[in-house]
Design a protein around this nucleic acid. Structure first.
Lengths: 358, 358
DNA sequence: TTGATAAATGACAGCGTTGTCATTTATTCT
DNA sequence: AGAATAAATGACAACGCTGTCATTTATCAA
């Protein structure tokens, strides 16, 4: 074993103070941007910090202060890409703001989920939680956390701000689904099917409403057989598409609740020797890598998950700050909206309409 | 806002002590399994802990003790499935052992990566790191961490234990690749191509060696044109397969370095109207969801990533314990091996040989 | 210049736990 | 039973930092 290198020796706030020739409290002021430090002193302290490669100890900060610099991300893994995008977005914000992140995968089926979360919050002294669907859409979770006074922000699927008292990031799945469906209609389709994801996810509900709204707007009859409930999986896409193709009058377009379903549907359709999009147009949702790993590539709706996550984290942090300073009034609960954007690709664009591809 | 519920009030070790009628040090002994506590006392303390839903505060534990209950997971990997599997495995072990996990995605290209890691370790007072490829295979990372005396365990691709001084989990990609290639040979193929992943990943190198070894063993001529270097991506699979098909004498089997490449290759091959596996057999590696989301499904090699991750975490924790107690001799550095298992699926099984599918 | 006020800095307790060592209590041996 | 030893328990400092409050230093008006 090699002995201490400069970087390894644990340098504390006191070491910095000594080198800078000030009290360690002054160093603390600098670290926390508290002000009340002369420019000259600030300079000395920062120099010392840099020279010693000083890093404030998060554990000590959480322990000593009334604040906490740790957030938690809670999810019930619907999809690896989504979770990782969320996680990376949150982490990016955390790094910028000097926060730590504790990851907590868990099961929505767990009866004692609220208790589980409370335990985690206490163990790790979390300042607040970021919760993604479907957990974020479970009333008991919302209620439980509220009762225990644990701050949190939720990402949920909703077309408009509801009367929620807690901070939320709203994803307007409904209108985005409307856009996709309308796009299919504009491509000349009127027999459009809908493959729905897990009903435990509000998104699947919202997307269905958007689909129906578009049909209604264009006076297209709504056919029950064209609407199949399933889950957010490739397998369901395969099976759903087969079912649709076996109808007496099959649809000419399929709007799948996400890209994984769409990929499955695409597969099944092509397996039957049909051409996409000419015989059957297929659209997904999410703009996940799946949508680019099919041929033809999938028309879909892009949710900037990474950015959403980042903003959610930023918003939560802001909310936490507000909670601490009572001057800010109650109504400053942060709300954010995102509307996924239509991404047109070959899976829905017939040759004649190709010019509409930007 | 609702006022405190039982669970929310911050209960400390002292509250437990008071309720149990002992000193808080005794409670600490119970929490840490230090022994030297009478059964009767133990009972009282445990009752109190349960009654109060007490959770030891990790920050305080890290701060006060010479130990730390936080690990770090460091990765730079484009594969969401892999990363999430790793993460979940590590988290599972952490939960069992009362550890916290700090996630740290980072870029292998970053010149100052070692410094970055050191910063994180100090900030979060990490006890040790778990590092997955390709970072785990970069000598400078290894050296840097060693110099700074930061304990870590690496997951690396290697066919045998090298003279590494640091703890490792070895993934025997070479022999698994041998198995896959031999399987293709047994299916009657002799013109077998190899689509290689990123060269910055040792796995792609190892898998290639396994491929070559199998050819050699069966006295099959090695053809340069059949070996194409690329990256672990769907796109490369498509492009690589096209290139192979354009050869004067195309192969009849393709071993792709991972499932994503294989999925791309499969796509390209089928697009040409060829039949898989009859015209072209295709195998992947990893047993990722990709391998089950193609038709036909992909023959592949299954790495139990989740389990590997869990064992790696367990092993690191054990190593940390050993480091603390000097009685254990130096040679007890933990080493683990995994050999991915061949999974035969339809993408390589010709109809006549279908009986060999277990 | 002087006193009054504001800004900058420092001294010190305390956060919830572990580590060390002293003290009390139980157990064993003669 | 009494001394000797081992086991169980407690008192208290310390970890690295923040919060509070006291003290010093600079700034300004008269």
């Amino acid at each position: 074993m090699v002995l201490d290198t400069t970087m390894n020796t644990k340098t504390t706030i006191k070491d910095v103070a000594e080198l800078a020739g000030v009290s360690f409290k002054t160093v603390s002021r600098v670290i926390n941007n508290e002000g009340s430090v002369r420019k000259e002193t600030l300079q000395k302290v920062n120099d010392a910090i840099n020279e010693l490669h000083y890093q404030p100890n998060t554990a000590a900060r959480n322990l000593a202060g009334s604040k906490s610099y740790s957030l938690g991300y809670v999810y019930d893994n619907p999809n690896a890409y989504y979770v990782l995008d969320m996680q990376n977005g949150i982490l990016a914000e955390c790094r910028d703001r000097g926060y730590e992140l504790v990851i907590h995968p868990c099961s929505a089926n767990n009866k004692h989920i609220v208790e589980e979360l409370a335990t985690m919050v206490k163990r790790s002294q979390l300042a607040g939680l970021i919760i993604s669907p479907p957990l974020s859409e479970m009333p008991e979770v919302l209620r439980g956390l509220d009762e225990m006074n644990i701050p949190f922000i939720r990402i949920i699927s909703a077309s408009e701000v509801s009367q929620e008292s807690s901070p939320c990031v709203y994803i307007n799945d409904r209108d985005a689904a409307f856009d996709i469906t309308e796009h299919l209609i504009e491509q000349g389709h009127s027999k459009i099917a809908f493959l729905r994801g897990d009903e435990s996810h509000r998104s699947s509900h919202e997307r269905k409403i958007g689909y129906l709204n578009a049909l209604k707007k264009h006076n297209i009859p709504i056919i029950e057989d064209y609407q199949i409930d399933g889950s957010y999986s490739f397998e369901f896409g395969v099976q759903g598409a087969k079912q649709l193709l076996s109808l007496a009058e099959p649809p000419t377009g399929i709007f799948s609740c996400n890209d994984e379903i769409a990929a499955g549907a695409l597969f099944a359709v092509r397996l039957q020797g049909l051409n996409v999009p000419d015989d059957m147009a297929i659209a997904g949702f999410e703009d996940s890598p799946f949508s680019r790993q099919t041929w033809p590539m999938l028309t879909t709706a892009a949710q900037p998950t990474n950015i959403i996550a980042r903003k959610a984290a930023a918003s939560l942090i802001q909310h936490l700050v507000n909670l601490r300073s009572p001057k800010t009034s109650v109504d400053s609960i942060p709300h954010l909206h995102f509307r996924p954007q239509l991404v047109k690709r070959e899976s829905t664009l017939t040759v004649t309409s190709e010019q509409s591809l930007e």
